[in-house]
Amino acid sequence: MDQETAMDRLLADPVEAINLGVQDFAENLEAQGAQVIHVNWTPPAGGDPEIIAILDQIL
C-alpha cells in the first residue's frame, strides 16, 4: 500500500473546510454539520494584476 496522502485523509476524516468567496457555501456546509471557517476575502491589491504579480514575487 502506498503512503497515505492528504487526499486519503480527506475521504477518511470529518470535513473541516475553509471557505473563500460565496458566503452561502459556508452557511450550507455549516448547516450540514461540517466545521467551516469563512474567510473575509477581498481581491488582493485592489485587483490590480500587475501589483499582484509583484507581490507574489516578493512575498
Binding site: 473563500l20 458566503q23 457555501f25 471557517i37 474567510v39 473575509n40
Partner: peptide
C-alpha cells in the same frame, strides 16, 4: 463571518482544516 482574511490566517485558527472551497 470569522475575522480572517486569508487561507493562511484561517489555518492558524483551524490547523486541522482539510479542504478549501474557492468561489472567488
Amino acid at each position: 463571518t470569522h475575522s480572517v482574511h486569508s487561507v493562511e490566517q484561517a489555518l492558524t485558527q483551524k490547523p486541522g482544516s482539510n479542504i478549501v472551497l474557492i468561489s472567488v
